[in-house]
Design a protein around this nucleic acid. Structure first.
Lengths: 195, 195
DNA sequence: GGAATAATATAGTAATTGATAAATAATTTT
DNA sequence: AAAATTATTTATCAATTACTATATTATTCC
């Protein structure tokens, strides 16, 4: 145990509270007073533990990607491109409509509608989305080499299609669409998958 | 001409300036000082002419729906359901990626990421999106009666599918996706259209 | 037990938010 | 020309924003 007065709050739990707020209200829609109240700490403790609001958001984003949004990495491990696409969409829908979570997706929720001061965060989030799309593209290229996607298929376009669906799910879920409604939509989307 | 000192600004032009800002930055991301600077008027004039920030947004929204977003109403007039879906998606993409416009769609951009104070606006915008989806559903039901959609098709699901694509286009465009990239995505989406 | 260390609590910073009050200027009506 | 009406200007309002300085409390090291 390090010298000095010990923390009387759990950093990981506090970070999870912050994530919930950012997820629901976006970066700029979440104020420090909302954060400190939900995290159960006061402002100087927040700054001591997390730097400032922006670094707190970035830490919450990291945690989001490695835990609630880990469905993406898992989906890429599926054996065929079709099943990858199905898993990405169902994972995205389940995340965006889980009753314990705020509706939608942090990467979408946090990225829209921001004053000029929020531009760096917005930029980071669209980069993260682009990275997900690129990972899918590479996975689909592998599928072409492995033969479970026809050689005529365009990996980049298919990845963009799935990511566009994902963004659409996030908006629809934030607007109140139900899980079963979005699953029906995903089923329709899979009907155009090349076989 | 009414009695009293005449306005020395054009209300419609000022409203259009406000729309540009709300479109780009969302409701809460746009401040009164940004508005007055862009509109070329000072605060009391804004309040006298438009009420307050919220009614100004609602007037900008009305203007948005009847002018830049009129593609939806026009698309519904197409003779077949397939062409309706094609037109809705291409209209949405062109709006969201037009070089003179802010990227994305006001209905999406303004609806995400908001503090609790912005809830009424967020609610209004998701209602407007739901209204568009309902209009499409009715149009597709008519198409079933007219025979250009098979009786087995589900009008509500198809409408939700197209609206989900639209929301996805808006997010992707706001994140920098190009018009041609999104048109390719729309082409893929149309491959699953029932015929 | 005393010094060093680190967290918390209280209070307060300058800047910005949406919104207004009072005074002034420009019209039409009579 | 005077009164009535309406817009603009200037200044300001209380509340909130992200953030910090100071003082206090709790712990470990020596």
């Amino acid at each position: 145990m390090p010298a000095g007065r010990p923390r009387n709050f759990d950093v990981d739990k506090a970070l999870d509270c912050a994530l919930q707020l950012f997820w629901r209200h976006g970066y700029e829609g979440t104020s420090l007073s909302m954060l400190t109240e939900a995290m159960g700490i006061n402002v100087p403790s927040l700054y001591a533990a997390f730097g400032n609001k922006e670094t707190l958001f970035r830490k919450a984003l990291e945690w989001y990607l490695e835990s609630p949004a880990s469905y993406m990495a898992n989906a890429l491990k599926e054996p065929t491109a079709r099943r990858v696409a199905e898993k990405v969409m169902s994972g995205s829908i389940e995340l965006a409509t889980h009753p314990n979570n705020p509706g939608g997706c942090l990467l979408v929720q946090g990225a829209m509608a921001a004053s000029p001061e929020g531009a760096p965060i917005r930029h980071t989030l669209s980069q993260v989305r682009a990275a997900g799309e690129a990972a899918m593209r590479q996975r689909f290229e592998r599928a072409k080499r492995e033969g479970d996607l026809p050689a005529s298929a365009d990996a980049a376009r298919l990845a963009r299609f799935v990511m566009t669906m994902n963004c659409g799910f996030a908006v629809q879920a934030a607007g109140g669409a139900s899980r079963s409604q979005l699953k029906e939509v995903a089923k329709i989307a899979m009907q155009c998958w090349p076989s």
